[in-house]
Structures are given as structure tokens and as C-alpha cells.
């Protein structure tokens, strides 16, 4: 990862002075990651997955806010006995869907999964998520540049994020 930006990163570090020498090992990582994210939009959205609350995660992922829509159908159990494996799915009747995301608001990190939907792919997905405790589950559908959401409360009897 650091080989391509190696000479550049080294020069910058020297310019920053002796104080940064101690951080050399840690410092390489952000240097390599930043240009790559700007270059390709199919890059893994690392920042969004680090956000702890739902609003910040949506903002980091899409840069805008979602409005509730009854055209987004979110299917999840009302009561999940095992928070480690909760089957959830989304379907929508919206056109020009480009992405679908799931957020579990009470989890340590809100964003659970984000799917990029190509042209010709049916806008819908089913998967299984972990939920730490009883939580709000939010599905976001990006269609024609706008965000639409659906929300459902899932009661969790045994959490899926602790030992």
C-alpha cells in the first residue's frame, strides 16, 4: 500500500520536521488512504463505517439527508431472539436506484451495510445483520440522486455484539 506513495510521503514527513518521526509508522496510513478515496468512487467508505450515530453515517456516506418514503419496503422481524443473526431485507418500487444501505441505530457503529446497485440490477437486497440491543433499523435507498428511508423497530432479546 505504501510503495506507490513512498517517496512523496517520506518527503512530506521530513518537511514536517523531527516531531513527526515518532509517528512515522502511524503516519503512513492516512497518507496512502486519502488520495485513493478521492480517485475511485467504488472505494470502501471507511469513514462512514466509523461513524457512531445514524445521522453522521448517512452524511459521511452520501453527504445529504434522507426523507421517509412509503416506496421503500423494509422487512425485518418485530422480535429477534438472537441479535447476532437478524434477517432483514429491503425492496423498493423507486426508479433509478443506485444504492441501498442499512443502519442499526443502537449499534456501536450505526452503518451496517451499503450496497451499490448497478443499472439492470433489481433494487432489493436481503441479508443478515447483528444488533446489539433493541434498536431502530433504518434502510436508505438512493434513487435518482435523492435519499429515501424506511424505519422499523426491532426488539432484540439477546444482543449480538457482546460476549
Amino acid at each position: 500500500m505504501t510503495t506507490t506513495t513512498g517517496p512523496l510521503a517520506t518527503r512530506r514527513l521530513i518537511l514536517q520536521g523531527a516531531a513527526s518521526v515518532a509517528l512515522l509508522g502511524l503516519g503512513n496510513l492516512p497518507f496512502a488512504a486519502t488520495p485513493a478515496r478521492a480517485a475511485a468512487n467504488d472505494k470502501y467508505p471507511e469513514e462512514a463505517f466509523k461513524q457512531k450515530n445514524e445521522a453522521d453515517a448517512i452524511k459521511a456516506l452520501y453527504g445529504k439527508t434522507a426523507e421517509p418514503s412509503d416506496k421503500v419496503k423494509l422487512d425485518a422481524p418485530e422480535i429477534a431472539e438472537n441479535g447476532g443473526v437478524v434477517p432483514v431485507s429491503v425492496t423498493t418500487t423507486l426508479d433509478k436506484v443506485s444504492s441501498i444501505s442499512f443502519l442499526v441505530t443502537e449499534n456501536p457503529y450505526a452503518l451496517a451495510a451499503s450496497y451499490k446497485v448497478a443499472d439492470g440490477t433489481v433494487p432489493g437486497v436481503a441479508n443478515r445483520l447483528k444488533m446489539a440491543k433493541t434498536t431502530k433499523l433504518v434502510a436508505i435507498v438512493e434513487a435518482d440522486g435523492k435519499l429515501y428511508s424506511a424505519t422499523k423497530e426491532v426488539k432484540v432479546t439477546v444482543g449480538g455484539c457482546g460476549g
Partner: peptide
């Protein structure tokens, strides 16, 4: 046709359908 970006909240031995 389909790209999934996953965080840690996806269950063990993940399943996906589309």
C-alpha cells in the same frame, strides 16, 4: 452488477440475496 460494502454489523458467515 452488485457491490456490497460491509461493516462489522453484518452477521457471521454472511448471506446476501439479490
Amino acid at each position: 452488477v452488485f457491490v456490497a460494502d460491509w461493516g462489522t454489523a453484518v452477521s457471521k458467515d454472511p448471506y446476501v440475496k439479490f
